[in-house]
Nucleic acid binder design. Structure first.
Lengths: 221, 221
DNA sequence: AATAATTTTTAGATTAGACTAAATTTACAA
DNA sequence: TTGTAAATTTAGTCTAATCTAAAAATTATT
């Protein structure tokens, strides 16, 4: 069994090796976890001794199969609890991350499976992130961001790649939430800002925002 | 804010001062928490410094108003989560205590209030224990055990005063669960065992079992 | 009241996780 | 290839929570 803290390290290493590729660097972990590199080194030794990571001094880390299983288990719990909080307890999508950070460490296999069933085996969390099944398998997905859609095309929002409450509330205000269908009218050459048609309204969003909105292209409306 | 561990100490002190009267002794806390008296003394000093308990060396402890508020908050969360696990996730009443021991430390006032609402503001947990409201107020209750009912009388089971899975499964097997109406036929003088009529069946239970079943007397069937 | 038994506290260590400061290794540029 | 900057690790502390063993205080018993 892993401690709360060990689980958080594994989860962070997992996320970092998804975004950039592995091996993951000590400093990257330290920054993400708001701690110091020296603390990370201490923990890496411990995780290595427990065979949860592969680690050579100065060479960064990758998760072992076992370590990845644990990390994906934590991600699964986090995302299922987020669905619970939004679907059952009526929280907004920008409020659930912090609470799920605590709930993800509750330790009961039976609880996770029953929660999954209670929620109807959801495939994605409220931000559109995929939920691994009990075997740790994710449904394949495309991950195209809005900025990559050619003009004149339609798309449906399936997720976001940035989870800060400020960003999520901004999207909410723009009516850019999961499931919304939009038409991409124009990408401004000068600053990369994007003009959209959403709910019959024309709106303009910055390149930064557009790049954090994940979509599926749609052939028709 | 209190740590996980501090919350557990406060909860234990709270429970012990309900059962026997206060002040609560160091050894009693140690036994209940499966730890050593020396560890308890260390923690008592800390809780005293935080003004969560009143404590004089060698004289035992009582909770301060603040400490009691925290303890009741933990009890409230524990019992609400137990209701969730049984009512929504279909756990049995003998399976929920351990999971609730973890969930009770999740830290979000909004979560507790929304969970309470989602569950329909339950007044009692799956073992019949009262759930304090958001202000820490318990609904008054009588707490008569089955052994105190005069023969020939009817009663309805409202709770239990012993929560071990073994005991709960035993009751389940005897069909002695919350809400069940029974008639007390006889209390055997020799060993205090009790003869009951439940669901039209005559059964016999030991004095020990009878004393851990809490009931309300009923005038009629 | 004196002594024995019990309870509680103190003293001193230990472990997990974190920190600072200094040393070391790696990477990169002149 | 040599020197410097950046990244990482080591060494040594710190705090929270625990422990054992010993000392002190309280309670019970003659």
């Amino acid at each position: 069994m892993q401690s709360f803290t060990e689980e958080n390290y594994l989860k962070t290493i997992y996320h970092l090796s998804q975004v950039n590729e592995s091996p993951v660097q000590t400093n990257a972990i330290a920054e993400k976890m708001q701690t110091r590199a020296a603390s990370v080194t201490d923990m890496l030794k411990k995780l290595f001794d427990k065979q949860l990571i592969d680690y050579k001094k100065y060479q960064g880390v990758t998760l072992t199969t076992h370590g990845e299983t644990v990390a994906i288990g934590v991600v699964r719990k986090h995302r299922l609890w987020e669905v619970f909080l939004v679907e059952k307890l009526q929280f907004r999508w920008d409020e659930v991350h912090e609470i799920a950070e605590e709930l993800e460490h509750i330790n009961s296999a039976a609880l996770v499976e029953r929660l999954d069933e209670f929620l109807g085996f959801p495939k994605r969390d409220p931000h559109g992130d995929p939920i691994p099944n009990r075997d740790g398998i994710f449904e394949p997905s495309l991950n195209v961001n809005l900025h990559q859609i050619p003009k004149g095309n339609y798309a449906v929002i399936i997720g976001v790649s940035e989870h800060s409450p400020a960003f999520l509330r901004h999207l909410e205000k723009l009516e850019l939430t999961i499931g919304v269908v939009l038409e991409l009218i124009e990408i401004t050459e000068y600053d990369g800002s994007v003009e959209l048609l959403v709910n019959n309204k024309k709106i303009n969003i910055s390149r930064e925002v557009a790049q954090h909105i994940l979509v599926n292209r749609k052939e028709t409306v």
